[in-house]
């Protein structure tokens, strides 16, 4: 009955890869400071608007407008991530973790309403990564932008993986995440690894925002939903597991697309939350287990 299976799959993969970038940034901050960054959705949204703004400075004839502005967007959002760490986390690093909840909610409010007041409430369309148009694949018409999104997001995921796994910086980052006290004791500059985590979270959010803004537009109120998706992905993937979060993001996107295409959006949404609750009851440490066992 469903004819557009290839399109749906490609869409789910493209959506999942942008969710994965967002979830990755979310979990990096969780690992760095042990607290949830409630402004993360707003960072993704802001990334979309920065992409729109930067693309407007390009000449009309520019090819690959999205790819050209991508480094700029990531850099700008990395800076925003640093500012977030500076004003939202640094003053509260000795306070209870839930204080960071409040400070990031407050910063999220500021970002959302600054965009509404400064740029306007209209939804905007971001630059396409590699121009418009579509290609024929397996007898289906697939938007080139979708394929480019999957490719670019995939490259970024691999790059982050390499950075965390194979560099001294990455090892320090992981060590500091596992045990900040011990890390400090053996001379790892925890301040720097924390700042780097926030900057990377911002940069990845920016990339996700850019890609979403072209495919699905961007409006100032988009943040909350994205933040919720990242949160759910993180829990499905196992709290603190970087790759679990990315996998969780793909799982969400695939689930939503499949159920929405075969039953309805409402059922997809209800089942997603019911599923998460059931998962928490049956496997209280996430689908893929937690990053590290709790010490007694």
């Amino acid at each position: 009955m469903i004819e557009a299976i290839p399109q749906l799959l490609v869409n789910a993969l493209a959506l999942g890869s942008t969710y994965a970038l967002a979830a990755l940034g979310f979990v990096l901050v969780i690992n760095a400071v042990g607290a949830v960054n409630f402004a993360h959705g707003e960072l993704v949204m802001l990334g979309g608007f920065v992409a729109v703004g930067l693309a407007a400075t390009l000449p009309e004839t520019a090819v690959l407008p999205g790819l050209i502005v991508l480094p700029g967007v990531m850099l700008a959002l990395a800076a925003v991530g640093l500012v977030l760490a500076l004003i939202g986390y640094a003053p509260l690093r000795r306070a209870p973790p839930v204080s960071v909840f409040i400070s990031t909610i407050a910063i999220g409010l500021i970002i959302q309403h600054a965009v509404t007041a400064g740029i306007g409430p209209e939804p905007r369309v971001g630059p396409p990564l590699i121009g418009t148009g579509s290609v024929e694949l397996f007898g289906a018409v697939i938007a080139r932008q979708q394929l480019a999104t999957i490719a670019v997001a995939g490259l970024l995921l691999v790059a982050v993986h390499a950075l965390l796994k194979h560099t001294r910086f990455g090892r320090r980052l992981r060590a500091a995440a596992q045990d900040p006290v011990m890390a400090r004791a053996i001379g790892i500059p925890v301040v720097l690894t924390t700042a780097a985590s926030f900057a990377m979270a911002g940069a990845l959010a920016g990339a996700a925002g850019l890609m979403l803004s072209n495919q699905y537009f961007v409006a100032p109120t988009d943040g909350a939903v994205l933040m919720l998706k990242a949160y759910v992905a993180t829990v499905i993937g196992g709290w603190g597991r970087v790759w679990g979060a990315a996998l969780g993001a793909f799982a969400i996107a695939a689930f939503e697309t499949v159920v929405a295409a075969s039953v309805s959006y409402l059922v997809a949404e209800v089942l997603l939350y019911v599923g998460v609750l059931a998962l928490l009851m049956l496997r209280p440490r996430g689908l893929f287990g937690e990053a590290e066992g709790r010490r007694a």
Binding site: G88, A95, S99, A106, L109, I110, H113, T116, A117
Partner: peptide, 22 residues
């Protein structure tokens, strides 16, 4: 501040939590 009032509100909330972490 018209539509900007929630920006100021967010700022005030941030100040409250930073100044009174407990």
């Amino acid at each position: 501040f018209e539509s900007g009032y929630l920006i100021v509100y967010g700022g005030a909330m941030l100040a409250a939590i930073v100044l009174l972490p407990r």
